[in-house]
Structures are given as structure tokens and as C-alpha cells.
Amino acid sequence: MALTGLLTIMGTIVAGALLLQWVAARARRDRLAESQKIPFLGGSAPNTHAWQRFHVRYYSMTLLFIAFEMEMMFMYPWAVVYVAEGVKALAEMGMFLAILTVGILYGWREGIFRWQ
């Protein structure tokens, strides 16, 4: 099974890392005072939680990215048969990428690769 090796090494490292954190936490019994738990802000006190509505300034880029990334789904199988199919494969993928590039150019023109 192809997954065995992958899951084994993942499991080993994740378990080891969690164990190290757990043992280290058990080994030190001293507790942090509440005043020590204030998030670091260069000395000033936070007046809000960090977890709140946030204006992520590149949101349009992420939407373009989701649509563009779909093309990867088609490219991997294409790469496998590329040599066997020859010029036809080059032409078809060239067309496909050209179509999608129009989208990127449009997005660039609308300024979505900057902070909105």
C-alpha cells in the first residue's frame, strides 16, 4: 500500500513532536501568572482580542487563485502522456493555459495583486 510509508513517517514525527511538548510541559511545574499571558505588543496593552473580523486585503487574489489552481488538476495527467501524445498535447495545453492567462491579465489590470 502506497500510503503506509507516508503515514508511518508522518505519524512518527507528529507523535514524537507532541510527546516532546507534553513531557516538557509536565516537567516544569511553575505556572504563568495571568499578567504574563497578555499577548506581546511591544509593551502596550491590547484593547481587543486578536480573533475578530479582519480585512484580509488580498481577498480578490485568493478567489482568482482558487479558479486558476483548478488547472493543476488537468495538468498532472497531461504531463504523464505528454511525450506519447506529442505536438497535440502541447497545442491543447497551450490553448488551455492561454485561456486562463487572460484571466490573470484581467485580474492584474483590475489591480487585484495589490492590497485592496
Binding site: 480578490s60 482568482l64 479558479a67 488547472e71 490553448m95 488551455f96 485561456i99 484571466g103 483590475e110
Partner: peptide, 12 residues
């Protein structure tokens, strides 16, 4: 491909 292009343009 065309559908994805339309999606990109529409979402922008």
C-alpha cells in the same frame, strides 16, 4: 478552461 476563465473574471 473557458468556464474557469469566466469564473476568474466574474469573481474579480
Amino acid at each position: 478552461g473557458v468556464t474557469l476563465l469566466a469564473t476568474m473574471v466574474a469573481s474579480v
